[in-house]
Computed example of a mutant assay.
Amino acid sequence: MLLKIYPENPNPKAIEQVVACLKKGGVIIYPTDTVYGMGCDITNHKAIERICQIKGIKPEKANLSFICYDLSHLAQYTKPVDTVIFRMLKSHLPGPFTFIFNASSLVPKLLNSKKKTVGIRVPDNDIAREIVNQLGNPIVSTSIHDEDEIIEYSTDPELIYEKYQDLVDIVIDGGYGDNEASTVVDCTSDPIEVIRQGKGILEG
């Protein structure tokens, strides 16, 4: 189904509907502060496998990131980070960044690739954050890519729905998405390193 949710003050009933779908193992497409993402409950292995199937990738090779409500999940899913990195995270999040850390043992085994790392996102988008907040744990996420060679990411939710309506349970129409992905920052290297420059500008 295509579900309209406005990013300013998202409708709680609509958010509840999405959360109920995720709890049942559903897969959703939702807006972020960058591109549209496809996501599911981090605790549901079948749903994670389904996302990998839709994307045509093996779970252990998938570069999936976690969408979190705030930094409170950080300590659960990553190995301890020092105060300098934590300060940097606080000054850049919520925002268009994916920060890569060493994964803790709580990261679902299915996602533990040989690299043993995890990407964490706190998007500056109230729809995504409210879903995660009500769900009570992160959602596993991957960007929606477009086959078009010129446009890398799909931005129109109605076109995304046309393409994915038989593959996912809910496509959230939260308005046009951006077509620039998040900036990926590797926090496992010393010094930290921007490995993909996207929408976010790392300062300091």
Rank of each mutant, 00 (worst) to 15 (best):
P31F: 03
K116Q: 13
T117H: 09
Y69D: 12
G37I: 07
I195L: 10
T142Q: 11
D41I: 00
I131G: 03
R50C: 07
L22E: 06
D146N: 13
V185T: 13
S141H: 02
L3E: 10
Y36E: 12
L106K: 15
T43G: 10
R196K: 14
L106A: 13
L22H: 00
T43M: 11
S104T: 07
L71P: 10
H145G: 12
G204Q: 09
Y6H: 13
I5H: 05
G26R: 04
V35H: 12
S65T: 15
E147D: 15
E8P: 06
D178P: 02
E180T: 14
E16F: 02
T142K: 08
N9R: 10
Y6W: 06
K13A: 09
N133H: 11
P59G: 04
E130W: 04
K163T: 12
V107Q: 08
V27P: 10
P108I: 01
T188K: 05
D82I: 05
V81R: 04
P12W: 02
S113I: 04
S182K: 08
E149C: 04
P31H: 02
Q197W: 09
H73D: 15
I67N: 06
I51E: 05
D126Y: 02
S104A: 05
P123Q: 02
Y69V: 02
N137L: 07
I57T: 11
L106W: 10
D178T: 07
I67T: 11
K116E: 13
I42D: 05
N102P: 10
Y77K: 04
L74W: 04
V171C: 06
C187R: 10
V140G: 01
I192W: 15
V27F: 10
Y153E: 13
V194K: 14
K4A: 11
K24L: 06
V194F: 15
Y176C: 07
E16H: 03
T98Y: 11
I28F: 01
A128R: 01
I139F: 02
E8N: 11
D126F: 03
F86C: 02
N44C: 11
T78Y: 03
G95A: 00
Q165P: 03
I29M: 01
M88S: 13
E158R: 10
